[in-house]
């Protein structure tokens, strides 16, 4: 990512911008059951730091420290995804090897899911980070 940012600087016009939207470096995914207009919070998914995400954030800092960019905007937010059942959630966990649903949360999820209202979905909320860097010089 550091090299990519250096390359980006080379192809930018004077004063041009890099927009970098990534998962937040440090966040805890939240699990809920969503239905109709409501939602029931179930708890937090355990997540160990994702090395590639940490590296991407480090690359931002390096690019700024090297003097090639100035930090124009730094902001964050959340986004949600919904899954239609436990099988999809298991799939999600397989894809994110650094995520873990501890047994008490998993039990709570299964129990709540078994009593779900019609149309309910499993919701995962996570955090993102957005930075805008301006080319210097």
């Amino acid at each position: 990512m550091v090299d990519a940012l250096r390359s980006a600087r080379r192809v930018l016009r004077r004063g041009g911008l890099v927009v970098d939207l990534q998962p937040a470096a440090d966040y805890t995914p939240r699990l809920a059951i969503a239905y109709g207009g409501g939602r029931k919070e179930l708890g937090a998914i355990t997540r160990t730091p994702d090395e590639s995400v940490v590296a991407a954030h480090r690359a931002r800092r390096i690019a700024i420290a090297e003097g090639g960019f100035s930090l124009l905007v730094s902001t964050h937010g959340t986004h949600r995804t919904r899954y239609r059942g436990l099988a999809d959630l298991r799939w999600l966990l397989r894809q994110n090897e650094n995520w873990r649903i501890e047994p008490p949360l998993w039990r709570r999820l299964v129990q709540t899911w078994a009593r779900r209202p019609e149309g309910a979905e499993i919701e995962v909320r996570r955090a993102f980070s957005l930075a805008v860097l301006r080319k210097r010089g």
């Binding site: 100035s70 730094s74 902001t75 964050h76 937010g77 959340t78 239609r84």
Partner: peptide, 24 residues
């Protein structure tokens, strides 16, 4: 913190909701 003399906009609002919901 990274750029003395440079103005940076840091958004401290509640996290921006980026998400009409999508599924798998």
């Amino acid at each position: 913190e990274a750029e003395v003399g440079q103005r940076t906009r840091v958004d401290r609002r509640r996290g921006e909701p980026l998400g009409k919901i999508s599924d798998r």
